[in-house]
Design a protein around this nucleic acid. Structure first.
Lengths: 206, 206
DNA sequence: ATATATTGTGAGCGCTCATTCAAAAAAACG
DNA sequence: CGTTTTTTTGAATGAGCGCTCACAATATAT
C-alpha cells in the first residue's frame, strides 16, 4: 500500500504541529499548569487524538524537549563545523547558542527550568534520551575547547567544567535576560560574555 | 499575658521546622509532586496544623524561598562588608555565594528551577517579595561592581548585566555541578570562575 | 477538680485533570 | 452507493490532592 508513506508524512506534520503549539503554552505556564484539554484546543485536535500521537502528557512534553535539544545540537554543530580558525570556532560556539536562544525562547525557558515532569522514580527512555542529548552536546563543546587548548590558543583549563559552565552561562544569561530584561540588548550581553570569556580563557599573548 | 512572648517564640520554632523539612522534599521532587500530607508527615505535624502556620501550599513554599533568599543576601552582604580592598571584595562576592550554595543546596536547586507555583495570573505579595529580594540582591552586586569600575580596578562594563550574569553563573554552575557532578570539585570550579571573571573584567595592568 | 480556652487532628468534601472508550465521522474500497 | 476499515471525538471515569471543620486532646484559669 503506497498510502502508508503519505499517511506517515501527514502523521508527522500533525505531530509537529501539536508539539509547536504545546511548547508555547508549556513555556508560559509550566508543565503542571497546562492541561491536555488546553493542548487539544490550541492545536486544533481533540483530547483523544493527542493520545494517538503521544503516549500521554509526559511523553508529549519530553518528546518536545528531546527533539528541540537535538535541533539545537545540530544547528550549533553545523555552524561551528562551517567555521575555520580556533578563535572563530570558540566565538561561533557562543554566537550560535545565542542565536538559537533567540529563535527558540520558549524551549529555552523550559529547558533551564528543568521541570522534570512527574516524580522521578521512573526513568523513562525519553527522559534518559534528554539527559544523553545534553551530555552529548556538552561533550561536543568540550572537544572544541580541548582543540583550543591543544593549539595553545586557550589556557589549559579543565575543559569539561568550562563546557558546562559556558553552556550554562549562555542558557542562563539569555533566559535571565528574557525574564528580567535589562537595559542593554541580548546581543550586547552576548558580546560581553564572549569578550570576558575569551579574555579569561585565552593564553596571554605576546 | 506574658505567655504571648513564649508562644510567639515556639510558634516560630515550629514554623521554621516545617520549612526546613519541606525544603528537602520540595528540592527532591519539585513543588507539584509534594503533597501537604507528605509535608505533614516529615515535619511531624498534622495536615490541619500546617494551615495554622501557612495560608496554604503555595504560601508555605514561597515563604521558604523568600526567607532563604533574604538569608543569602544577608550572608553575602555581611561577608563582603567585612572585606576590604576592591579585588578582595569582588573575590568575596563569588566565594560567599559558593559557600552559601554549598550549605543550602536544596534551596538553590529550587531557586534556579524557578518553579513559580500555580498559574501566574495572580501575583501574590509573597511572590512579589521574592522578586524584590532577587532584584535587591542584584543591585547590591551591581553596586560593588560599580565601585570596582570607578576605582579603575575593573573595566567599564554595564554593571547590571555583569551582576546578573555573574549571579546566574554562580547559581547555575553550582547547581549544574550538583546535577552532573564533574570530576573536579565544586571549589575548583569556583576558582575557575573567579579566575576567568577577574581576568576578563580586570583593567589591563601595566 | 472543674470549667474554659487553645491547639491539634485527619476523615471527608469538592474539584481538577489525565486517560479511556463507545460511538460518530471520515476514508478506503469494490 | 453500500460496506468495511480507520480515524476522530469528547463525555464519562476515577484517582489524587488541597483544604475544611467537627471533634479530640491538651493547656490554662479558677
Amino acid at each position: 500500500m503506497e498510502k502508508s508513506a503519505r499517511k506517515e508524512r501527514e502523521f508527522k506534520v500533525r505531530r509537529a504541529e501539536i508539539l509547536e503549539q504545546a511548547e508555547k503554552i508549556f513555556a508560559s505556564k509550566g508543565f503542571y499548569n497546562v492541561t491536555m484539554a488546553e493542548i487539544a484546543n490550541v492545536s486544533g485536535f481533540s483530547i483523544g487524538s493527542l493520545y494517538q500521537f503521544f503516549e500521554g502528557k509526559e511523553n508529549l512534553y519530553c518528546s518536545m524537549l528531546s527533539e528541540k535539544l537535538d535541533l539545537m545540537h545540530e544547528q550549533v554543530r553545523e555552524k561551528v563545523k562551517a567555521t575555520s580558525g580556533i578563535a572563530e570556532k570558540i566565538e561561533m560556539i557562543i554566537a550560535a547558542h545565542f542565536q538559537f536562544v533567540e529563535n527558540n525562547a520558549d524551549f529555552c525557558k523550559l529547558f533551564i527550568r528543568g521541570e522534570n515532569a512527574a516524580p522521578s522514580e521512573v526513568m523513562t527512555s525519553l527522559r534518559q534520551k534528554i539527559i544523553d542529548g545534553y551530555s552529548q552536546h556538552l561533550t561536543f563543546i568540550e572537544n572544541e575547547l580541548k582543540s583550543g587548548i591543544k593549539s595553545g590558543f586557550l589556557r589549559p583549563f579543565p575543559a569539561r567544567d568550562v563546557a558546562s559552565v559556558l553552556f550554562g552561562l549562555i542558557r542562563f544569561s539569555a533566559v535571565d535576560w528574557m525574564l528580567f530584561p535589562a537595559k542593554t540588548s541580548l546581543s550586547s550581553r552576548k558580546d560581553f560574555i564572549l569578550e570576558v570569556f575569551l579574555r579569561g580563557l585565552q593564553q596571554n599573548e605576546k
